[in-house]
Computed example of a mutant assay.
Amino acid sequence: MMSLLWIILPYSAFLSFAAGHVWRYRHDRFSWYITGPDVDRAQRIGAPALRIGIGMLVVVRLTDLFFTGPHNHPDGPLDIALAVIEVCALVAGSVGAVLLFVPDMIGTPARQAVTPLDRLTFPLMVAALLSWVAVKFDPNSSADANLTTETLFTWFRSLFTLHPNPEAMANAPLIYQARGLAVLSFLAIWPYTRLAGIFADPVIRFILRIRPELAASRTRLRAAGQQT
């Protein structure tokens, strides 16, 4: 069970994330419906807000991952800057997620834009947020005994070596295990939801400006998607 949860599952999530992006590119060139003419103003605002929020969170998490140890963590101006960025990222990401997902879930979109995985994405984002709060304010964790570093960071770093360390999570408190599983689930389904284009779509748009001859195939795929 330990190997299944903390070795097989994470590598499967990484594979799903990578293979899903390849499939999505071949399927519709990331021409997700949010860029269509039938999108309301709230969703047009929600997409970049979510992009900015998630982008800033990734920067903070990577900084923590590489510069934090059991008895070593960022302090001084860097710690303050990371805290400010994290708060701003959570606000932007939360507002963006609500604007992007909620209108179609409570309304009746012109076409079937919400998939079952889209409906699962929003609860997973809420679970990731709540688990972050639980881990961040865990009374059993402190600067001298940072449980996040000893469990989540140690395990995640080990996945990129030839020696995964599932014991770090197998012996972790429940809230740390729940956070790890929520993040893995989020990564696994990412390419198969409307979130697939959050970062990929701007890159594709930039490439199309450089290579305008590639725009025709994307236009055809988008037109075909709007008819289904």
Rank of each mutant, 00 (worst) to 15 (best):
T63M: 11
P109R: 08
C88L: 15
G69S: 07
K136V: 08
P212W: 08
S31K: 03
V133S: 09
V95W: 01
E213N: 11
P139M: 10
R218Q: 06
S142M: 08
V102T: 12
P103W: 03
L221S: 09
L82N: 09
V95K: 04
D40E: 10
G69H: 06
W23T: 10
V126C: 09
P173T: 00
P202I: 07
D201M: 09
T154G: 00
S141E: 05
R220T: 13
A196K: 02
L187Q: 07
G197L: 00
Y11E: 06
L184D: 01
N72S: 13
A143Q: 11
W132L: 12
L159E: 07
I7L: 05
A19T: 09
A215M: 02
R44E: 04
R24A: 00
A110S: 08
A223W: 01
I210L: 15
Y11C: 10
T63S: 12
R26C: 13
V84W: 05
H21R: 12
A47V: 10
W6A: 10
P116D: 01
P10T: 02
L214R: 10
G46C: 06
V114I: 13
L174M: 13
A128Y: 07
T151E: 03
A168E: 13
P103I: 07
S31Q: 08
P173K: 03
F17E: 00
L5P: 11
A200W: 09
M125T: 05
L90M: 14
A196I: 01
F17Y: 14
P212Q: 08
A81L: 15
L50R: 04
V60M: 05
G69M: 07
L78A: 14
A19D: 00
D38S: 07
L5M: 13
S158P: 12
R119S: 12
E86L: 13
S217C: 01
